[in-house]
Design a binder for these strands. Structure first.
Length: 690
DNA sequence: GCAAGGTC
């Protein structure tokens, strides 16, 4: 018997079905589905994993944060232990009868490692078991057929490269997290995490906040004139200078406006606007963010749509359709349901469909596209919004570019040059079917040089330069991809991690004081982990391992030595670190201004000496004895928001496995009971969608 | 209880 191992249960089922022409027989082994099929003359069993089945960790004796010096973790042994016990059991049992293992996990580095781990588990009872590799980029008849027709060798070096990443991430993450947390007494639920991906990501947000804080606005002035042709057509033109930095100059230009205008010259250009490229995970998150979905919400809903068979696999880097996807067939299928019939017709009436393509071409999965035509009624409103976005995006990638005409006219008004810009779409093509693309036609009439224009109004506007914008979750995911931080499957969870650590909040994202302090310390004393360079260097090392130029042990050892140097520096400044973080944490704990008359204290979180319970008190105690009660569990974050009902400060309570709870501190707030009831009805462990 | 990477 041959044993085929795939990365997930749903893929196992589809592979079994394709290889057997839907002749698979399902058996449950320790609750795990195993599909029995016949492949040529061979009996085969197909089993699906749940991603990684083993995790890395330090031995138990290192688990107490207070008893182990973080530095001792650097050279500690690293163990691999099962994550999903039933799958490991089932795998071992089925492997007992196997003569060969075929690894059919995702065609990427982690897929190779997941497959290698599964093979090692399978070998346990069967020391002669060898492994082959099926490589495919889409679970379609043709791709699966050719992958199994020419099986390859499992790429051990590629798997070891993945293993190096696991070890290095664990060592650096655990050592620095424990050190920073212990140094500042931020322990238990308040611990301060540090990691190869999360820390550079946090640095992006903090750097942006610093830029905003340091930004000095400069005033400028804009001078406009409103004009009219003989035929009565009205339009606007702006002074050629656009921004006047001196008010006197703007006033001078403004006061000169009189008499009539004369067209100096007119320029027309026609621009093509290319259709959007096929969705991968990042571009889906970015687009969905602009219609109001957080990154986590997008991923949750997409996962749902995928599990129901409505869209293709949502975790992909690829932006180029693979040849085995029949774009025309999918369009025909979508046309039937009616909601997108117009767009489908436009696609199908082309003599040849030429799909757009993005810059990233990978082997992991196809781009995200609809796989089933589903009606609006059978989805929730959010599901439909996302599904519609994916369908429209898909259809637009199959349509020709739009064309936009731009007109620029220079107009002389009393010796000053004003510029009128107009633009209008002359060929809609894909834009017609993609309402998410915002384009507004700007009208200007047909003008000819020498034409005289009547002045009907003039204005001088006071403006000022604006600081750069904070990152939205979408923009952040995009930036992370650009810098190589995280993967398609983890970028949104990294953002969630930073939120649940109390480092950042909101969308756009604002860092807390402790986030600013941690980033400052890392930049100064552990620069390596605060920068995306650590990831790019790791990528190079992993490529080296995959090529066979270096070994996994050499790379991990080199990394350990580097961390030891970093720790020597950090230990020298432990007292400063402690001071700096404690100060920031204190500032984060200012809930708002005291509400008592004539008191200028701050409301802060305090702990009662008697009962050891926490509460909100005034910093002016004992002069002011104002207090508010607090929930005793969860992390407390000030939000700087005021309660809509009673205007008292609102705090956010974050408890692991629960949706964040926004709470007004006023015990007598009219909305309080209702909010608390809402919170209580959420079960622990329930997934938060924002 | 630490990370980041899979998947649910």
């Amino acid at each position: 018997m041959k044993l085929i191992i795939s990365e997930k249960e749903i893929a196992a089922k589809r592979i079994a079905s394709i290889l057997s022409g839907n002749g698979q027989k399902e058996e449950k082994v320790y609750g795990v589905s195993v599909y029995h099929i016949k492949l040529g003359k061979d009996e085969c069993a197909v089993i699906g994993l749940k991603g990684h089945i083993l995790k890395v960790d330090f031995p138990k004796e290192y688990s107490n944060w207070f008893k182990v010096d973080p530095v001792d973790l650097i050279d500690a042994e690293i163990e691999k232990t099962p994550i999903h016990k039933n799958i490991v059991q089932a795998l071992k049992k089925v492997a007992g009868d196997a003569s060969e293992v075929i690894i059919a996990t995702d065609f990427d580095r982690e897929g190779e490692l997941i497959g290698y781990d599964a093979w090692q588990v399978a070998i346990g009872k069967n020391s002669l078991l060898n492994a082959k590799r099926a490589k495919f980029s889409a679970i379609t008849n043709s791709d699966i057929g050719s992958a199994f027709a020419k099986l390859e060798k499992l790429d051990l070096n590629l798997a070891f490269a993945g293993r190096a990443r696991q070890d290095i991430d664990l060592i650096w993450g655990a050592v620095l997290t424990r050190f920073i947390s212990l140094a500042s007494y931020q322990v238990k639920e308040n611990f301060l995490s540090v990691g190869r991906v999360q820390s550079p990501t946090l640095t992006l947000i903090v750097d942006r906040e610093m830029e905003i804080q340091a930004f000095v606005t400069t005033p400028y002035w804009v001078v406009n004139v409103k004009l009219k042709t003989d035929r009565g057509e009205e339009f606007e033109a702006t002074h050629k200078k656009k921004r006047f930095l001196k008010k006197e100059e703007a006033s001078k230009a403004f006061s000169k406006i009189s008499g009539e205008g004369e067209v100096l010259d007119v320029n027309e250009t026609i621009r093509s606007i290319a259709p959007p490229t096929p969705f991968n995970t990042t571009s889906l998150i970015v687009s969905a963010n602009s219609i109001g979905f957080t990154a986590a919400k997008t991923i949750n809903i997409a996962e749902n749509l995928y599990m129901n068979g409505y869209i293709s696999y949502p975790r992909t880097d690829n932006t180029v359709y693979t040849a085995s996807i029949d774009l025309q067939e999918i369009t025909k299928m979508l046309k039937v349901s009616g909601s997108f019939a117009d767009a489908c017709s436009d696609v199908l009436k082309q003599s040849k469909i030429i799909p757009s393509r993005g810059k990233k071409r990978t082997t992991d999965h196809p781009p995200i596209y609809p796989t089933f035509s589903v009606s609006r009624q059978s989805l929730s409103s959010d599901e439909w919004k996302l599904y519609e976005l994916i369908v429209r995006r898909f259809l637009c990638t199959l349509l020709p570019p739009a064309q936009i005409k731009s007109i620029t006219a220079n107009i002389n008004v009393s010796g000053e040059v004003f510029v009128a810009n107009g633009s209008n779409i002359i060929k809609e093509n894909w834009i017609k079917h993609y309402p998410y693309y915002k384009h507004e036609d700007v009208y200007i009439p047909n003008l000819v040089p020498g034409q005289k224009l009547k002045i009907i109004d003039r204005e001088m506007l006071d403006k000022e330069t604006k600081p750069p914008a904070r990152y939205t979750q979408g923009k952040l995911v995009e930036k992370m991809e650009e810098l190589g931080l995280g993967t398609k499957a983890t970028r949104h969870t990294i953002i969630q991690t930073l939120i649940s650590r109390g480092y950042i909040r909101g969308n756009p994202l604002v860092p807390s004081e402790k986030a600013i302090a941690v980033v400052k310390i890392l930049k100064k004393h552990a620069e390596k982990i605060s920068s995306p360079d650590m990831t790019s260097e790791l990528e190079m090392d992993m490529d080296g391992i995959a090529r066979g130029d270096e070994t996994k042990d050499e790379v991990v050892e080199k990394s350990r030595e580097m961390l030891k140097d970093v720790m020597v520096n950090l230990k020298n400044v432990k007292a400063d670190i402690s001071q700096e973080i404690k100060k920031a944490v204190k500032e984060d704990f200012i809930i708002g201004k005291c509400r008592q008359k004539d008191c200028d204290g701050n409301l802060i979180v305090r702990v009662s000496k008697k009962s050891k319970k926490r509460f909100i008190g005034c910093s002016a105690y004992p002069k002011c004895t104002s207090t508010f009660s607090l929930p005793q569990l969860g992390m407390i974050l000030p939000t700087k928001d005021k309660c809509k009902r009673c205007d008292y400060p609102v705090i956010r309570i974050i408890t692991k496995g629960r949706k964040p709870w926004d709470l007004c501190i006023n015990g007598d707030c009219p909305g309080k009971d209702e909010k608390y009831k809402n919170y209580k009805s959420k079960k622990p462990g329930q997934k938060s969608s924002d």
